[in-house]
């Protein structure tokens, strides 16, 4: 793997956007993208968890490889992610109770956000070094936030338009996501 940090970043952010091209983190993407004011903080919180998880996963992977305990990788990753989500939850509760309430059930659900575990698994599978791993997780988080914010903006506009009632709800969101995904395909090849 001889990708430069910039390539990894652009790839994770646009060309292989976590949500729209790799289908990671769809539950919060469909769940929290109703309003712009919750979508952005959710993206930032997820990005933070991703960075912490990626950092810990990198260290842990060295340890596991050293002791030849590869089969414990999945279990230890998930425990790390659960703990970092707990940390973010406590910090948010202390410093921004309003936001904490707004995110509600979706905050603990970051634990089961495939994007977070995905970052940890992909960086291991692709054998990224430390800088590459951190760039990858930051790009992935930024890409997730970008997709969430775009989707929320479109959905806010859509509440004002006349949609056939049968198509309202998830079906409409999925179609929107499809169009966004189609747009993001234009970035293919950008990261080289």
């Amino acid at each position: 793997m001889h990708e430069s940090a910039a390539q990894i970043f652009i790839n994770a952010l646009l060309a292989n956007n976590f949500v729209l091209a790799m289908f990671l983190g769809l539950c919060p993407f469909l769940g929290v993208s109703g309003k712009l004011e919750t979508a952005f903080p959710m993206g930032v919180a997820t990005t933070f968890v991703m960075l912490v998880a990626s950092l810990c996963a990198y260290g842990l992977n060295l340890l596991l490889t050293y002791f030849n305990l590869d089969f414990l990788r999945l279990i230890s990753y998930i425990v790390i992610i659960a703990s970092s989500v707990q940390l973010v939850e406590m910090v948010l509760k202390k410093y921004s109770p309003a936001l904490f309430r707004a995110l509600g059930i979706y905050l603990p659900l970051i634990t089961t956000n495939c994007a977070v575990l995905g970052v940890a698994l992909f960086q291991t599978a692709r054998e990224y070094d430390f800088v590459q791993s951190m760039t990858f997780s930051f790009g992935g988080g930024a890409g997730f936030t970008l997709a969430l914010v775009l989707m929320a903006s479109v959905r806010e506009r859509l509440t004002l338009s006349d949609v056939p009632s049968v198509a309202q709800g998830t079906a409409l969101s999925l179609m929107l996501a499809g169009v966004l995904s189609l747009a993001f395909m234009g970035f293919a090849g950008l990261g080289g």
Partner: peptide, 19 residues
């Protein structure tokens, strides 16, 4: 078989069941 297709097909199925 590309990502957008996944969204479109699932969206269509949901539409079908809603109808």
């Amino acid at each position: 078989v590309l990502p957008p297709g996944g969204f479109f097909v699932l969206g269509s199925w949901l539409l079908f069941f809603a109808a």
